[in-house]
Structures are given as structure tokens and as C-alpha cells.
Computed example of a mutant assay.
Amino acid sequence: MRYNIIGVCKIFYEEEGWGWISIEGEADVWVHFSSIQMDGFKLLNKDEKVLFDLEENPNLKEQSRRAVNVRKL
């Protein structure tokens, strides 16, 4: 697990509750609405900066790099 990484929301599918966060110089990271730390309806907007922890699980295919504890900056 890596902590306190800054990234930018690449895309977030509000109706499905998931999206991708870009990290400069690295592969994109998958994010689920349940990992967003905020009250009310949880979503990210395109190009919004976020701070998060990175959980890696090489046994998974697309979601092998997952953002957790996501906080908007």
C-alpha cells in the first residue's frame, strides 16, 4: 500500500459509481464511490485533484491498482 498520492480524476461514471484517476508517469488507478471520503452523494469530477492511498492487487485484472481513502483537494 502506498499513501498520500496526488492524482487527477480522468473520468467518473456517476450513474455506475466508478472511474479512473491519473497519476503522472504511472498507469491509471481505478476508483469506486465507496472509497471517496465525503458526506452525501459521492462522486468525482473530471480534472479534479484528489489525494488517496493506493492499494495494489496483482491478482486482479482491471482493478489491480485501486484508490482508497480518496479525498478531494
Rank of each mutant, 00 (worst) to 15 (best):
M1N: 06
M1T: 12
R2K: 04
R2E: 15
Y3R: 11
Y3K: 12
Y3M: 03
N4D: 12
I5S: 04
I5G: 03
G7P: 07
V8I: 14
V8P: 00
C9N: 11
C9K: 07
K10S: 10
I11D: 07
F12V: 06
Y13G: 00
Y13D: 15
E14L: 02
E14W: 03
E14T: 09
E14S: 04
E15Y: 02
E16N: 14
E16L: 13
E16C: 11
G17T: 06
G17A: 05
W18H: 15
W18R: 11
G19Y: 00
G19M: 08
G19S: 01
G19V: 12
G19A: 09
G19H: 00
G19Q: 06
W20M: 10
W20D: 03
I21H: 09
I21M: 03
I23C: 04
I23K: 04
I23W: 01
I23M: 11
E24G: 07
G25D: 13
G25K: 03
E26Q: 13
E26P: 03
A27P: 05
A27I: 06
D28H: 02
D28M: 06
D28V: 09
D28Q: 07
V29Y: 01
V29D: 04
V29L: 04
W30T: 15
V31E: 09
V31C: 08
H32G: 01
S35D: 03
S35R: 02
I36K: 02
I36A: 05
Q37W: 02
Q37R: 15
Q37E: 14
M38S: 11
M38A: 05
M38T: 13
D39Q: 08
D39W: 00
G40V: 05
G40F: 01
F41L: 09
F41N: 10
K42M: 03
K42S: 07
L43W: 00
L43K: 12
L44W: 01
L44D: 00
N45C: 10
N45A: 03
K46R: 08
K46F: 00
D47F: 05
D47T: 13
D47Q: 14
D47R: 13
D47N: 15
E48L: 08
K49Q: 09
K49R: 12
L51T: 13
F52Q: 05
F52Y: 05
L54P: 09
L54S: 03
E55F: 09
E56G: 07
E56N: 08
E56C: 12
N57Y: 01
N57I: 03
P58F: 13
P58W: 07
N59Y: 06
N59P: 00
N59D: 13
N59W: 01
L60M: 10
L60W: 06
L60S: 07
K61V: 12
Q63H: 14
Q63F: 03
Q63L: 02
R65V: 06
R65D: 06
A67S: 10
A67L: 09
A67M: 07
N69M: 12
V70L: 05
V70T: 04
K72R: 11
L73W: 10
